[in-house]
Amino acid sequence: MVKNALQAQLLKAGLVDNKKAKKLSKQAVHEQRTGQNDDAEIKAKIAQDKQDKMAKDQALEQEKKSILQEKELKAAIVQMIQQHKIKDVAGDVVYQFIDDSKIKKVYLQQQIYNALVSGSLVIAKDLDSYAYLPKALADRINEKMKGFIIVNNSEKNEQVTDEEDPYAAYVIPDDLMW
């Protein structure tokens, strides 16, 4: 009548009765038939899968947030450039600079040209063209994100000449015209 030794011992000790023993044996047979005896392993695997999925979802969400923040920062920088660029710069003086390994030529007013050469103005990328900005604004833009400022002559003017350079006394001006 009793199928395993543990149930027999529980019956002898009086801890369970015949009805309870039959119910437990039927439940054990049912669990064995349906595969519920590995419940703990399955639950642990499901919990681990949930944790993995949550970690993956959080990583994707973080990546999306960083991409969105980068887009917002670029838009803010473009807006700053649009608001603070110097307008009406067309003139007769030619200024040449390098952008993406290509030499670009722009015609500027003499005052703008002198400011570019001295480093008080910089050239920044403005969507499809170029914008002329004050150096202070260019420094703020460079702090936020690199890649917008194309020409910044103030950095060249601040460089210290090498003491061992034999031509250190012969400074070549940036505004040399050929």
Rank of each mutant, 00 (worst) to 15 (best):
G35L: 01
I81F: 06
L15V: 15
K50S: 12
V171A: 14
L6C: 08
K65T: 14
S118Q: 13
K19T: 09
I172S: 13
F148G: 09
Y130L: 05
D39H: 07
L24W: 04
D39R: 08
A55Q: 11
M80C: 02
V171L: 10
G35N: 01
G14D: 09
E63D: 10
M145K: 12
K144Y: 13
K12S: 10
I149H: 03
L68Q: 12
K125C: 04
E164T: 03
A138W: 00
L133D: 02
K156I: 11
L127H: 14
Y95F: 07
A47T: 14
V29R: 15
N152V: 06
Q79G: 07
K105D: 03
T161S: 14
D57M: 15
K23Q: 14
L108N: 10
Q36K: 07
L60N: 15
N142L: 15
E164R: 05
L60T: 14
V151Y: 04
K12W: 07
I98G: 00
V93L: 03
K23R: 13
N18H: 13
V160E: 12
K64S: 03
V29T: 12
P134G: 02
N152C: 05
A28G: 11
K23N: 11
A8H: 09
Q48A: 11
I150D: 01
G147H: 08
M145E: 09
K65R: 15
K64D: 01
K43N: 11
Q79I: 01
A90N: 01
Q109W: 02
E72Q: 14
E70S: 10
A13Q: 15
A131T: 04
K125G: 00
A131N: 07
N152R: 07
L137I: 05
A168T: 02
Q36D: 01
Q51T: 15
A55V: 05
I98W: 00
L137E: 04
Q82C: 00
V94L: 06
K104W: 09
K156Y: 08
A169S: 15
D128N: 13
I103Y: 03
I103D: 00
K64H: 06
K19Q: 12
P173D: 09
A90S: 01
D17P: 08
K53T: 06
S120G: 06
K146N: 10
D17C: 10
D99N: 03
R140G: 07
E163S: 13
M1N: 12
Q58A: 07
E70L: 09
K146H: 08
G35S: 02
L6G: 13
K43Y: 04
K85L: 03
I67Q: 13
Q62P: 02
V117C: 08
Q48H: 08
S154Q: 14
E155Y: 10
G119P: 07
Q58S: 04
D175W: 05
D88Q: 10
E41Y: 00
L15E: 14
A169V: 15
Y130W: 14
